[in-house]
Structures are given as structure tokens and as C-alpha cells.
Design a protein around this nucleic acid. Structure first.
Lengths: 333, 333
DNA sequence: GCAACGAATCGAAGCGCTTCGATCGTGATT
DNA sequence: AATCACGATCGAAGCGCTTCGATTCGTTGC
């Protein structure tokens, strides 16, 4: 193993000088810096992470709590993870994988043992049982998702309420007067997933403000359940001309089912969804949608948490404003 | 921060005694052990990972190279990751996330810097460009997937050739004489994904052995492409009575399309697939299938790599034998 | 009764790094 | 000419742990 000592000898300087070249915390002459860097390259030196962590009291590692249940939303989870790892590397940090299943205490274990300098928690729910414990973690914590009681914790998320309002406005501005929300599967609401509830709230708020009749439906995935749900929507409320869909898993089946009923999108029915852009694009009918900006959210979470490792910062909730992309699945009426 | 020193004082013993209680590397009297353990619990002591790594020259971390492109197979990737993290924890290790995209050199960086003691690489392809570099990594490496040239490297995978043969036998034993393989999207073959090629080889080998006519089709995902593919299969080769499908993404659409054409499974056509069990179960027609045993593969990979951290072991290729589960989508003819 | 032994424990020497003075020129300021 | 400030560098003191002798003491064997 090549150590800093050998680099120092090779470059003809002291150990501390090499360290300062690496960290840039003191000024070093150009000449010396060059020599040291050459030695580092020549010897193929990699600083020992353990020694560095021990001496500096910083591991340069972020703990990431990932939901590893095989959920509907796996691709989105992946996007988050990917963006977090990339951003972390940009900030010169690595990412340690913690599973939600492994239970709480994990966040505590890795921070208390200085394996990680901070924690990012994905997929946080309204009444997330992990929240109380996370408050006691003695390291910066950032949540992806906003629990009901987020006192003292930093959170990042899409503004789902705004997204709900925005989708209603979009349809209303096109002249639709009667619209329905096809929401997430019942299980999602029961789990108390905060984003589902917040979107619903935004949806109801905006429809109320505009005096529009509403109908809201929870829809489980599966070929038959979608069809049944559509029956209810279309028969229970005649005159529905617009569909707001917050349920990725069901989009494909929904569109096929509409086609089967000879209902044209957007001629007979306008459809707008909240889903990842690539999903919206690759459906049989490309959908006008609001996307979950996973990459941005991940990058922000990393940036927030890394900032808080070195500097004190008040807890903060950041809600990204929704962005709507038109793809022709909604039309004026 | 609570250190071993404080635990030692609290328990009235020396630092080394505490260390030996923790590691069990020397005998300690029951009485002392108990006192130390009580002190650890009372103080909430967590050993400092950096110090431990520095002194013992082992980080107790596994580097995991994950493909983070948003692929078809994301749920399977998740299953692997989940099982690897769980198994790693069972072996008292943590998992550091490395992305395939971040390029090679990452495996080298983390092992050279003693951030990780070993590397597991997921989603290895036939002519994987990372393989040569991985050979030079000075730490145990285990690949999930078998590259063409795996000289000197340990690999774990499903025996896809056996799976191909097995699916053919299953249909043949039921009396089917003319069957077709609906394979992965062209992109997968072009990428040289080794498992696709190996399954195809097994399929061809067994059909040849049994003198069965074969027809092989690559099928891209997408509602129209599936339909077109089915046209080719059913018209080009009349008399096809069995379908072997190695293409998760397409299964749902395929079954719907068959239903649309009033072809009953298994009455008119037997279908057998290679896909995760939960997919096979939740399709409109539950499919007889061979599953990718992600959990087992992950656990084996971890076990292999952890073993090799402390002991020398020759490189080894382990191929798991396929297991077939009947779900009634194949029938005698 | 004494050497020999093993179990239980301790002290101290690192592991490779960061960081805090301290030192030494050199040029600018008085 | 004496002083000061500053840039560049070095030496040494840890960071918290593991591990290798060394030490102590109660047993055992002869």
C-alpha cells in the first residue's frame, strides 16, 4: 500500500506538505504542488479513507436509506438513487446503502460509528415511524418526502398540492367543467403516503375554488380493476370530459381500455397525468404530464445535506414547483 | 463521542480488554465480558469505523457496482441489491454504492483507498469492458453474470443455457413439436448481454437434440411491436403450439394480444417464460415459469466475496440450476 | 515444593492521516 | 536598520482502534 509518507519521500517534501497539497488548506508553491502531484500520479497513491476519516473526523460518506420493497415505483426510485450517487460524487462523497427494512437504528449506527457524515432518507410517508428516531440522529438528515410532523427536519419534495391544482387548472382553462381524479391504489392511501394525500388536497382545493364537480377514484393495478374503475368513472358521473391520473402503474392499461371502448384521447376525453417523463412519452398516446423531477430532487437533497455537514443551517422544507409538459393528450372543449 | 477509552474506564478494565470482548479474539472471563457489555450498552458506544479500519486494515464494506440506467429490469435489479445488502449485513458488512456509469476506476479507487474490502459487480455482459480492469483490482471481486472471458474472476449466475433447455424439454415432454422463442429486444442482443445469448444457445441445443423445428424472434417492447412480432410468429410458422418467452417487458402485452386474437392459453397455445416469480403470478394468465433467483444469487455473491476477503480461494464460476414452477399456462397436446 | 502452563488482563506501539504551532526567508514598512 | 507580515514548509501530536508481547496468578504435574 502506498502511503502519504512514500509520496512525501518521493517528492522530497514533508508529509504535511503532501497533505496540504491534497486539501488545499494552506498555500503551497506552484513548484512544490507540481512535484507532489507528479509523485502521486507516479506512485498511484490513494489516500486511506479510514485514516483520513479518523484524523479529520469526516468520512465523506452519505448514508442513503432506500425503500427496497419491490414497489410499483421502482424506476423512479432508481432515478433518485442514481442522481443522489452522482451528486454525491460531485461533492466528493460516496454513498452507503441502508435499507428501510433493516429498520431504524441503522441511521444511528452509521452516524454514531462515523461511517457516514449525514443521512438521506427516501420515500418518507405522512406518519413515518422513522421520523422520531431520525430527529435524534446526531448528523444532518434530509428527507425526500414531507411527513406530517417535520418539525426540526429538512425535507425536499415536489409540491404535490401545487401539482394537483395545476392539473385541474390546465383542464379547466381548456374549458373542462367536469373532471375526475384517478388516484393511487388504495394501499398507497392506507399507507399514508404523504404525496398522494397532498396531490388529492390540491386537486380538491382547485376544483372547489372553481366550483367544479369532482369525482375521485382510487384504482388498484391489474387489467380488470382498471376496467372496473373506468366503468365507475364514466357511468357514475356522466359528462366527465377530463381525467387527472396519479397512478403510473395503471396508465398503460387505462389507455388501452379507453381505446377498446373507442374513446379517443383527447377528442372524447382529455387525460393528464403525474408520472415520469419517459413514461408519459412512451405510452400509446403520449400524455401531457407533470413529471416527478427525481434528478433535481436528488441533487438538491445532496446539496442540502452536504452543506449541513460543515455549516449550521436551520431545518428547511423545499418544495419544487411542478412543471407541466404538453404532449397533446388534452384538448379544448 | 463515546470512545473505547470511556467504555474501558466505565467498566474498570483496560482498552485492550474492551477490544477483545468486542472481537472475541482472546479469552475473557464471563464476569468481565458482562461488565464490559453493560458499559457499552449504558454509554451507547459505537466503535469508530475509521479507527477500526485503520488499525485492522479492513473496512467491513463491500463495494457494489450497480447499473443505474433505467432499464426494463429495474425490479430485478432492486431484488439483487436488496438481497446483497441484507446478506452483507448478515456478514457484518455494509454496502457502498458505485454506479456503472461513474466508470471503471471506481472499483479501483475504493479498494485502493481501503473504502471497501471487496467488490461485487452486477449486470456483467459478454464482452464487458470493465472486465480487464476488474482483474487488476487488488481485492476480491465477484461478478453477477458471466463474461465470455472470465479467466481469473469469480462469477455467479443462473445457468441460462440449462434454463433454455429446460423450457424446451418441458414443452416437448407435453407433446409440443413446434415451438418458438420470443427473445429479448434486439438491443439486448446487440449489447452482448451474455445471459440472453446463453439462453438462446440452450434453447437451440435442446430443440436440435430433439429434432424440433425452431423459430426465434427478438421482440422490442411496445404495443405495436409485440403485435407485429406475434403476427410473424403465428403466420410464418403455422403449427406453433408453444411459446418460450425470455422478455419480461413484453409478457403483459403479449398475453393481452393473444386474448384479443381469441387464442386461449394454454388451450390454443402453451406459454412458458423466464421471469421473476411475482411477474409470472400477477399476469392475467399466471405463467409457468423459470424464475431468476435474485435473492439466492445475491446471497451467494456476498458469501463468496466475504470468504475471499480473509482466505485465499481460487476463482470459481457458480451457475445456479433453474427451477421451474408450473402455473397452468402449459398443457399437453 | 517448584517448574511449567494456560487463562485473563494490561500497556504500548503502531495504522495513515490531518492540523496546529513553529520556523525560516523575503519583501515591504517604518 | 529594525520591524512586521506573510508565504512556504516542517515536525509532532493526536484521532480511536487493533494487536503483539509481557505480566500476573491460580493450577497441574512430578
Amino acid at each position: 500500500m502506498i502511503t502519504i509518507k512514500e509520496v512525501a519521500r518521493h517528492a522530497g517534501v514533508s508529509i504535511s506538505t503532501v497533505s496540504y497539497v491534497l486539501s488545499g488548506k494552506r498555500s503551497i508553491s506552484e513548484e512544490t504542488k507540481r512535484r507532489v502531484e507528479q509523485s502521486i500520479a507516479a506512485l498511484g497513491y490513494h489516500p486511506n479513507a479510514g485514516a483520513r476519516a479518523l484524523a479529520s473526523n469526516r468520512s465523506r460518506v452519505l448514508g442513503l436509506v432506500v425503500p427496497l420493497r419491490s414497489d410499483q415505483n421502482v424506476p423512479v426510485v432508481m432515478q433518485f438513487v442514481s442522481s443522489i450517487v452522482t451528486s454525491a460524487r460531485d461533492h466528493d462523497h460516496d454513498v452507503l446503502l441502508l435499507t428501510k427494512e433493516a429498520g431504524p437504528g441503522e441511521a444511528h449506527r452509521v452516524t454514531a460509528g462515523s461511517m457516514a457524515d449525514a443521512i438521506i432518507v427516501m420515500d418518507v410517508e405522512s406518519a413515518d415511524p422513522r421520523v422520531p428516531e431520525l430527529r435524534t440522529v446526531d448528523a444532518p438528515v434530509v428527507l425526500l418526502g414531507v411527513p406530517d410532523d417535520h418539525e426540526g427536519l429538512s425535507c425536499v419534495d415536489l409540491d404535490f398540492a401545487a401539482a394537483g391544482r395545476r392539473m385541474v387548472s390546465h383542464l379547466a382553462d381548456l374549458g373542462h367543467r367536469s373532471i375526475a381524479l384517478i388516484g393511487s391504489p388504495p394501499a398507497v392511501y392506507e399507507r399514508g403516503t404523504s404525496y398522494a394525500a397532498r396531490l388529492l388536497a390540491g386537486f380538491q382545493q382547485e376544483t372547489a375554488r372553481r366550483n367544479m364537480p369532482v369525482s375521485v377514484h382510487s384504482c388498484a393495478p391489474g387489467y380488470d380493476s382498471v376496467s372496473a374503475c373506468l366503468d365507475t368513472v364514466l357511468h357514475q358521473d356522466r359528462g366527465i370530459t377530463g381525467l387527472v391520473v396519479h397512478n403510473e402503474a395503471v396508465l398503460g392499461q387505462l389507455l388501452l381500455e379507453l381505446r377498446r371502448r373507442s374513446l379517443d384521447v383527447p377528442r372524447d376525453l382529455s387525460v393528464i397525468a403525474l408520472c415520469p417523463d419517459d413514461v408519459a412519452q412512451s405510452l400509446p398516446v403520449p400524455l401531457t404530464s407533470i413529471s416527478v423531477p427525481a434528478r433535481e430532487l436528488g441533487a438538491i437533497a445532496v446539496q442540502m445535506v452536504v452543506t449541513r455537514i460543515t455549516q449550521d443551517h436551520a431545518p428547511e422544507v423545499r418544495l419544487l414547483q411542478p412543471r407541466l409538459t404538453e404532449r397533446g393528450s388534452t384538448a379544448a372543449r
